[in-house]
Simulated scan of single mutants.
Amino acid sequence: MDTHLRDLRYFVATAEELNFTRAAERLFVSQPALSKQIRQLEDGLRTRLFDRDRRAVTLTAAGAALLPAAREVIRCWDEAQRVVGDAVAAEAALLRVGLSTSVGRGLLRRARAGYAVRRPNGRLRIRQIDWDDATAGLAEGEVDVALVWLPLPNPDAFATRVVATEPRCVMVREDHPLAGRPSVEFAELLDEPFLALPSSAGPLRDYWLAIDHRGGRPVRVGAEVCNADETFAAVEEGSGIVLLAAGNAAIYQRAGTVAIPVNGLSPSELAVAWRVDDHRATVRDFVEAL
């Protein structure tokens, strides 16, 4: 038979009180209801657990044998509930944050500090996602919020708030003919081989290739790149040039490459994004912390 935990709780209370009236009061149930559950337990076990007469209630040998086992089952279940509760609380306090590049700009530092004020027991787990997913893990549910570059694919699925607006630069090899210039016009770059995000990045690939500013001129793709390390290694190797935000130009500046401001392009937008159907307070607190 399958015995309900409630039946064991009723049995233990009665065994400890050895009085149906007191046990019923302890359990906040009526005495008839308690007596019925005890009878059902006895019927299921096919043995009496209590000897009853008008003067006393005593445990039978079977009841005495069941008592320690019943206490242990109840203890184990209570412990299991506690462990699950702790896990749920820990999960609720954990917020997964997706990134595609190092965001710098002091954003994560300020976000951590602000989030800690709102949620002293909260934790942030940062996940780095390659550029084949322009949502930095949001679309697949790998993260709860993400710092992303706009535009996003399937934008109706996400809420966004812009946290940085910056002009675009171009990164070239230090021996590139344009490397010594203080700035360049985008028209001067039209025939250059560009490094491109994977096709799965959707509109973000087109954005960093500046398709809207080419006047119909086709783009030359020198190579496809999936992350920052691949990108700047490809620039150093001479596979192509790449557009990037001014803030990222400062973060990723390295020997052998030069970043030059580009005129004639719309500014880039870095945003915090989350799923439109995610209304959790933890998500709201992180967004507000930024």
Rank of each mutant, 00 (worst) to 15 (best):
H4K: 08
H4V: 04
L5Y: 08
D7L: 14
A13K: 03
L18E: 06
L18I: 00
F20K: 13
R26T: 13
L27H: 12
K36S: 14
R39W: 10
Q40A: 13
L41A: 06
L41P: 00
D53K: 12
A56E: 15
G63H: 07
L67G: 00
P68Y: 02
R75L: 02
D86G: 01
A89P: 08
A90W: 10
L94Y: 02
L95F: 05
L99F: 04
V103G: 06
L107W: 06
R109D: 06
R110D: 07
A116I: 12
A136T: 08
A139Q: 08
G141R: 08
V143Q: 08
D144G: 09
V145E: 05
V148G: 07
P151S: 10
D156T: 06
D156Y: 01
A164I: 07
E166S: 15
M171D: 08
M171F: 07
E174N: 04
R181H: 03
E185H: 12
E188M: 13
E188Y: 02
L189F: 02
L190Q: 07
P193R: 03
L197Y: 01
L197M: 03
P203V: 00
R205S: 09
Y207H: 13
D212R: 13
N227E: 13
V235C: 06
I241F: 06
V242M: 01
Y252V: 05
R254P: 03
T257S: 06
A259R: 08
P261L: 09
L265M: 11
S266F: 07
V272A: 15
A273M: 08
R284S: 13
V287Y: 13
